[in-house]
Write a protein that binds this DNA or RNA. Structure first.
Lengths: 119, 119
DNA sequence: TATTTATTTCAATACTATTGGAAATATGGA
DNA sequence: TCCATATTTCCAATAGTATTGAAATAAATA
């Protein structure tokens, strides 16, 4: 495992796009709960109350974003979360969107601060 | 750390929607870099190569999602990142989308649950 | 091969988001 | 007050995303 987490903004954006939809966030959370064994497409559709084609569309988007994996098992397609994917997204957000002055519990807790014009 | 951050899925979703757009991710990252002093709307538009109305639209979306704050300073509107907002999103993702078997630091969580196929 | 079950692709439609010019609003200063 | 600057709102055009029934594909089994 050589995870350098040199995650590009483009890749992070694609992941954010994948997760930023209600049904897809539902599906993703369901699969996180389901653990490494994953779930078949049909079971996911039933759980999330989605018609099969709608569910299939969202699964494809999540897979495209690198958040899911799938493999065939008999007649079923078993979907599982790609753990490294969500970790990479968290790392990206921590690194690029939450740096130094935004370092967890570092600075003063309250929001109050007097901003000054820049530029 | 005393705050429980009971961030709802609906709120997390709104934040994900706010961040999952190229211009908005650009703006957000720019403001993270700019630190607590923030930047005026005009400066943000120039930095991100956006016409003023387009930039204003995106700033409003980010603010709606709880990722930015703004306050007037003379003729300028100064935008700053809402640190608690992005922290809450990270906490939500860690808690709901990256649990046990997706342990960041390979720590065996206090609740170790058996991952099993759900229905 | 024909049948059943599981899932995806297609295609039409509906919906939501993005864009940017023009006009409106807000502020500071002469 | 009038003018210049800073930003937002309005609005209409365009672009992109979501939804789902019907058809197609895939695999197991008789």
């Amino acid at each position: 495992m050589e995870t350098t987490t040199a995650y590009s903004t483009a890749e992070a954006l694609e992941m954010l796009c994948a997760l930023s939809q209600e049904s897809r966030l539902d599906i993703f959370r369901l699969l996180v709960q389901s653990g490494p064994d994953g779930l078949a497409a049909g079971a996911i559709a039933r759980h999330c109350h989605l018609p099969a084609p709608t569910c299939s569309f969202h699964l494809k988007e999540l897979k495209k974003g690198g958040l899911l994996r799938c493999c065939r098992h008999g007649r079923s397609q078993i979907y599982t979360v790609n753990l490294q994917g969500i970790r990479d997204l968290l790392d990206y957000l921590t690194e690029h969107c939450c740096t130094d002055h935004c370092d967890h519990e570092a600075t003063n807790g309250a929001d109050g601060r007097e901003p000054e014009a820049v530029d």
